[in-house]
């Protein structure tokens, strides 16, 4: 082993130790626990595949898988579009841009629990500001668009929409990454397009997005990994999985309830294994799609940033 590699390993050691002790070992223990019945009070008992068999018939898990996947399918793209849109809007120097950037970042800085409680108030069907706003100019208890106001916490569809809505404001991190990536793009690329007389749409489609593609790819995968868990606090605090039976019950909530409310740690570990598998499948699908697109030159899978 060369000196460089030894040094590299030495520098990595603290991280690797942390990774093994704090992540990999607990993860392995969890996977092992999935084959037991464990309540942490009495000893645990090996049950083989029983937990996984029960998973397949558990209505909460079934509903949660559907909910989690639909959340993934709606929230991840919307969050990305919003973050990219705002980053492109706010990358130029202009008046109040600093304030606007801070405003985009701010919701992400609010502690999750407080953020959830805030939305509980915002989404209050009658007194909440969201519906108050929607009903401005509306008549007879209808919104300004003439429809009935959304019943955020009592209608299944509206509640799911509410959870997605909540997720759309915590895009600060994604926003910062896109913003930084955009600022790092070479001005020549834009001048080149300008010289050819490209209009804004063409610049976006043919210059900005392809150049940002490597970053966006990473962000999509990252957001997918996170979003299965990201739905947890809002559902615990705002909807508690309801409206009943399982309108906003996501896997993270099922896991929490089984483990910490019903003390079924073994079964909850099986739910965790399911979550892990779903995440892996989602990322695998994205990765294959992106690779296919990259090979067709649709996204910059091969692209390098300037200077390389």
């Amino acid at each position: 082993m060369s000196r460089d590699r030894r040094q590299l390993l030495l520098m990595l050691t603290p991280y690797l130790v942390g990774l093994v002790v704090l992540v990999l070992l607990p993860a392995a223990a969890t996977m092992a626990m999935a084959f037991t019945e464990t309540d942490l009070i009495a000893g645990s008992r090996l049950v083989g595949w029983d937990n996984f068999v029960e998973l397949t018939g558990d209505p909460a898990v079934r509903a949660a898988v559907g909910n989690s996947l639909s959340y993934l399918a709606v929230s991840v793209p919307l969050r990305l579009v919003l973050a990219v849109g705002l980053a492109l809007l706010l990358h130029r120097r202009a008046r109040a841009v600093g304030t606007a950037r801070a405003a985009v970042l701010l919701p992400g800085a609010v502690p999750e629990l407080a953020y959830g409680l805030l939305w509980l108030w915002l989404l209050n069907p009658i007194q909440g500001p969201v519906n108050q706003l929607l009903m401005l100019g509306g008549q007879g208890g209808r919104t300004m668009f003439g429809s009935l106001p959304p019943q955020w916490l009592t209608d299944p569809e509206d509640a799911r929409a509410g959870i997605v809505l909540m997720s759309l404001f915590t895009i600060g991190e994604t926003f910062v990454i896109v913003l930084t990536a955009r600022l790092a793009l070479p001005p020549e690329a834009y001048e080149l397009a300008e010289l050819e007389g490209a209009h804004a749409g063409q610049v976006l489609r043919r210059v900005t997005l392809p150049l940002l593609a490597p970053v966006l790819t990473v962000l999509v995968v990252r957001d997918t990994l996170l979003s299965l868990q990201a739905s947890f606090v809002p559902t615990l605090v705002v909807t508690n999985g309801g409206p009943p039976p399982y309108a906003t019950t996501y896997l993270s909530l099922v896991l929490y309830q089984d483990a910490f409310e019903y003390l079924r740690y073994g079964y909850a570990a099986a739910v965790a294994a399911l979550m892990l598998a779903l995440t892996a499948v989602a990322v695998l699908i994205q990765w294959r799609l992106l690779r296919r697109w990259a090979s067709r030159g649709l996204v910059g899978g091969q692209a390098r940033l300037p200077g390389n």
Partner: peptide
């Protein structure tokens, strides 16, 4: 875009993607 000129830059005249 309306001037009908073409330009080669010192560096980075090509789009990497």
């Amino acid at each position: 875009g309306q001037r009908n000129v073409s330009m080669v830059f010192q560096s980075y005249s090509l789009l990497p993607h």
